[in-house]
Simulated assay, not measured.
Amino acid sequence: MRAKITPFLLFNNEAEAAANFYVSVFNGKLLSVTRYPQNTPMAGAVLTASFEILGMTMTALNWGQEATYKETISFAIEPETQEEVDHYWNALIADSGEEGPCSWLKDKYGVSWQVAPEILPRLMSDPDPKKSAAVMQAMMKMKKIIISDIQAAYDNA
C-alpha cells in the first residue's frame, strides 16, 4: 500500500501566488500548475499549484470562494539557528501577516505557523522542573522566539 498525505491549502484565486510565496520563503520548488479545462466556466484559470517546501509536498487549490483559516491547524517549523528563526518569522509575517504569542503567527493568507526552534521543546522537556519551567516562562513572554533568551532562562534556573 502506498499511502501519502498532501496538505491542500484553499484559496479564492490566489493559489499560484501563494505557492510562489511559500516556495520563496522556504527555498522550495514549484512542482506543477494545473488549469481548469477549456469547457468550464473558469477555463484556463489556475486550479492547483503543487509545490515542495522543506521536503513536504503541498497543493494550493483555487476553489472560487474565500477560505478562512483557523488556528486549529498549523504548520510547525523547527529552525536550528536564530538566523533561521528570523528569516522564517520575518518572511511569513511580511505584507500583512500577524504575530502571535509563543512562536505563533499567521501569514498574509491567514495560514497559522509555529516558528519554534528545535532547542525549545528540548529544553522544555528537561527532567529538572525548575529548568523546564524557566524556559516555559521565558517563552510565554515572547512572540518571536529568541534562542539566546531561552538558553539564558535555562542556564540561570
Rank of each mutant, 00 (worst) to 15 (best):
K106C: 12
A153E: 12
K143T: 13
N13F: 05
G110C: 12
M58V: 09
E84L: 03
M56H: 14
K29P: 01
E16A: 13
S112Y: 01
M124N: 08
E84A: 09
I73C: 08
E52I: 04
A91P: 06
Y22K: 02
F26L: 00
M58N: 04
G44E: 06
A3H: 15
N27L: 10
T81K: 00
K130W: 11
G97E: 11
G97N: 09
M142H: 11
Q65V: 14
Y36W: 14
W113T: 08
K144L: 11
M124F: 07
N156T: 13
P101R: 13
E71M: 12
E118I: 09
S125R: 13
M58H: 11
K29V: 11
T72P: 07
N27A: 12
E71G: 15
Q114P: 03
V46E: 09
I147F: 03
M42L: 15
W63S: 03
A45D: 12
D107N: 04
I147V: 04
K141H: 11
N156V: 08
T48S: 02
R2Q: 14
M139W: 09
D128Q: 02
G100Y: 13
I73Q: 05
L47Y: 03
V33W: 01
P7F: 08
K4D: 14
S96T: 15
L9E: 00
P79T: 08
Y36D: 05
T6D: 07
N13L: 04
P41S: 01
P7M: 11
Y36K: 10
Y109E: 07
E78Q: 14
I119F: 10
N39Q: 12
S24L: 08
E84T: 11
A152H: 15
L54E: 15
L31W: 04
D128A: 00
Q38V: 10
I77A: 11
N27F: 12
R122E: 14
M136L: 12
N27P: 01
Y154N: 05
I77M: 11
S112E: 03
E80L: 02
A67E: 08
A133N: 13
S132H: 04
P101M: 15
N12P: 01
T68C: 08
M139H: 10
Y22F: 08
I150T: 05
G55I: 01
E78H: 15
V115A: 04
M58I: 13
S50T: 13
L30H: 04
M142P: 03
G100T: 07
P37R: 06
D128S: 08
M139Y: 02
A116N: 14
Y109T: 09
S50C: 08
L123D: 05
G100S: 14
D155Y: 00
G44Y: 07
S96K: 15
W104V: 01
G110M: 10
M124I: 03
L9C: 09
E80H: 09
M136V: 02
E66M: 14
V46D: 10
